[in-house]
């Protein structure tokens, strides 16, 4: 096993071996999660705190369930209604929490880099559950697991990522992960929703959907981030759906066995056709949710192992035992 990271802040810091290690372990946790008794003791006795500075239902419950299945004591803190509103800074919040001796800290924050900042100030493992427009590493890993299980591999695939790339941390993390695993990536979306300098990332950029989907093995749709739109990126939702919404007709350009993915929550009729999203022959959206729990179990298990080893080394005066 090669996974040595202390925190999971982004895909950027992981090697392809790290990624494979996570996916292999996650495969085992998928099996565990399908049993009636879904319990392991990997995190027994450990405390996991979920700190969400941004509202989230799916990711937070996925992390909560993952921690509970591994036997951790899980606490959810909804920071939207907490002392942050009273003016406490992120660092002070982190130091306060740190004094409660958590072992795993799962953080989502609206500002890019906020989770990195927090990780510097605490002595536990920090998992990034999404920071601003920066990274959302567990989402990219669960997408990779979904692709690997559906396609049998996670190399040499043509993956089309469509929609609001500029505001999406999911796109950022997937782009880095799929690049590290040597896939061919196409980004599709209106130029107003493409981040600057994107042509230097080693991927193809298309503003025409049909052209971009040509021969794709995987079609990854992104949510149109309505709450992030400070206005004027697209003329209207209906024009967006007409040009960039995924329906059966546009999907016909992709490879016949292409799978359709979406990180959720979906805006049906804005970026994806409702019927297509429910088509069990094409859509793996429900699988993504299932893989999410397994991938988060794997990440927390690996980080907890490193945390124990790290603390063991400290206890023995820095000597490896």
């Amino acid at each position: 096993m090669t996974f040595r990271a202390r925190h999971l802040l982004g895909i950027e810091q992981l090697t392809p071996e790290d990624i494979r290690t996570v996916l292999d372990l996650a495969d085992r946790y998928v099996e565990l999660s399908r049993r009636t008794i879904k319990h392991s003791d990997a995190l027994a006795g450990m405390t996991q705190i979920n700190m969400f500075f941004e509202a989230s239902t799916r990711t937070q419950s996925s992390f909560e369930l993952a921690g509970k299945r591994l036997g951790a004591d899980v606490m959810n803190m909804s920071m939207a209604q907490s002392s942050v509103k009273k003016g406490e800074t992120l660092i002070d919040t982190a130091l306060t929490l740190n004094a409660m001796h958590p072992d795993l800290l799962v953080v989502r924050h609206p500002a890019s880099g906020a989770v990195n900042l927090l990780a510097e100030k605490v002595n536990c493992a920090v998992l990034n559950a999404g920071d601003g427009r920066h990274e959302h590493p567990t989402q990219a890993l669960l997408d990779a697991l979904t692709i690997r299980r559906a396609k049998g591999r996670i190399q040499r695939l043509t993956v089309a990522i469509c929609g609001d790339i500029a505001h999406s941390r999911v796109a950022r993390s997937n782009l880095i992960l799929l690049g590290k695993m040597e896939n061919h990536i196409r980004l599709i979306g209106p130029p107003t929703l493409m981040p600057p300098g994107i042509s230097e990332f080693g991927c193809e950029v298309c503003d025409d959907m049909a052209e971009g989907l040509e021969g794709a093995d995987v079609v990854m749709m992104l949510r149109l981030q309505r709450e992030r739109m400070d206005g004027g990126f697209i003329p209207s939702e209906r024009e967006y759906y007409h040009r960039y919404g995924l329906d059966a007709e546009k999907l016909a350009n992709a490879s016949p066995d292409a799978i359709v993915m979406h990180p959720g929550p979906m805006n049906r009729g804005v970026e994806i056709d409702g019927e297509l999203a429910d088509d069990i022959n094409r859509s793996v959206i429900q699988d993504q949710v299932e893989m999410g729990v397994a991938v988060r179990m794997a990440c927390m298990d690996l980080l907890a192992q490193n945390l124990r080893a790290d603390r063991g080394r400290k206890a023995t005066g820095g000597v490896y035992v």
Binding site: R133, E135, R172, E200, D230
Partner: peptide, 20 residues
């Protein structure tokens, strides 16, 4: 307005709002 980096590959990697 509201930006904290120069638009380019670096600002996109870091996910920072950027001005050209």
């Amino acid at each position: 307005r509201g930006t904290s980096a120069t638009a380019g590959k670096f600002s996109s990697l870091r996910g920072l709002p950027a001005a050209p």
